[in-house]
Amino acid sequence: MGPDAPSSQRHRPAFQQTEDYKPPTWPEQPEHQQKMIHLDLRVNTGPESTEDAGQTALAEAVNLALSLGGTLADPQHRPDLRVILDPAGHPLCLFLD
């Protein structure tokens, strides 16, 4: 859905607070966290689809996420994907196609 779609057709995230919240662990460890959803966000490399352009776009996306309060998770297992933790510890993945 594009930004010009009628509001009834747009997807919107909803959030709720949990009193017994425990921050997630990374990497995930059974019995050490509550089940939750995380976001996978594809990084657009623009018209160039070279490896260098992809890594540059991924680095820019990571820098933006970090500037908004995220932290880079440890460990990172793939060169085409970065796991960022939001300020509450939720993981989100920035990835290249």
Results as ranks from 00 to 15, higher is better:
H32L: 13
P3H: 11
P79S: 12
C93G: 01
N63F: 03
D86F: 03
T18N: 10
D86G: 04
D74C: 07
D86M: 03
D74I: 07
E48T: 10
Q29F: 02
L72H: 05
D74W: 07
C93N: 04
I37A: 15
L66F: 06
D20G: 10
T25I: 02
A65V: 01
Q33H: 10
Q17A: 12
T56V: 14
E19F: 10
M1K: 09
A61D: 01
H77Y: 13
L85Y: 03
D86R: 00
N44H: 12
A88N: 14
I84D: 00
T50W: 05
D52H: 13
L66M: 08
S8D: 13
D52V: 09
A5H: 09
E28Y: 14
H38M: 02
G54R: 00
T45W: 00
L85C: 05
D40P: 03
D80G: 10
K35M: 12
L92Q: 02
N63V: 01
M1E: 08
D20C: 06
T25R: 11
H32V: 03
S49N: 15
L96N: 01
T18A: 15
D20K: 12
Q16G: 11
Q16A: 15
A14W: 08
H11D: 10
T71H: 06
T50P: 04
N63A: 15
R12S: 14
S67P: 01
N63D: 15
P27F: 05
E51F: 11
P24E: 03
G54D: 02
L96P: 00
P27N: 06
Q55W: 06
L85K: 02
G46Q: 05
F95C: 06
R82S: 07
P91R: 07
R12N: 10
H11N: 13
E19T: 09
A65W: 01
A5S: 12
P24V: 04
L64N: 10
P30R: 12
L96I: 02
E19G: 09
L41R: 00
A73C: 02
H90Y: 10
G54C: 04
P13S: 09
L94E: 00
Q29Y: 00
L92K: 00
I37K: 12
P30L: 13
P13E: 05
G89R: 03
A14N: 10
H90T: 08
L41I: 15
R42A: 15
V43N: 04
N44L: 10
L81F: 06
Q55M: 11
D97G: 12
T50I: 02
T25E: 11
E60N: 14
W26E: 03
P27Q: 08
A73P: 01
H38E: 07
Y21L: 03
K35I: 12
K35D: 12
T71S: 13
P47S: 14
G2M: 07
P75A: 04
P87T: 04
L96E: 05
D74T: 14
Q55N: 11
R10S: 04
F15G: 00
K22L: 14
L66C: 06
P47D: 15
A61I: 00
G69R: 11
N44Q: 11
Q29R: 12
R12K: 09
L39Q: 06
L72Q: 07
V62F: 03
L81S: 09
M1T: 14
T18R: 15
S8C: 10
V43P: 00
Q16W: 10
F95A: 04
P79G: 06
S49T: 15
P3R: 08
